[in-house]
């Protein structure tokens, strides 16, 4: 059992990936590399990022985006921005 299941930010990210990449939500895992997600090339990834930004009311800096390797790191970056004042 992973902790992500009760994390609303993980759920949002996972929901957006699943909706946009058209993959079942249970296949999106925290340790999955973002550049290896099924159906996700660089354009799809951008659509995912912008939709997550919109849903969480945040803006992720492009430099920061480039440092992100996994879905878990993406969720962590979102969490930091949501918590920031």
């Amino acid at each position: 059992m992973t902790t992500e299941t009760h994390d609303p930010i993980f759920d949002t990210v996972c929901g957006v990936i699943s909706r946009i990449a058209k993959v079942p939500p249970e296949t999106v895992r925290a340790d999955a590399p973002v550049s290896g997600l099924q159906n996700v090339d660089s354009i799809v990834l951008l659509e995912i990022i912008v939709t997550v930004e919109n849903e969480l009311g945040i803006e992720i800096d492009e430099e920061e985006l480039f440092a992100i390797d996994t879905v878990g790191e993406f969720v962590a970056a979102c969490r930091r921005l949501v918590a920031a004042p």
Binding site: L46, T51, N54, E62
Partner: peptide, 24 residues
């Protein structure tokens, strides 16, 4: 390369922002 990819990302993010807003 990283430098142009960053610029491209910025450009496409603004396009997607527009589209996502329009869709909403």
């Amino acid at each position: 390369n990283r430098e142009f990819s960053l610029r491209k990302t910025r450009h496409f993010k603004s396009i997607y922002r527009n589209l996502v807003r329009k869709k909403a």
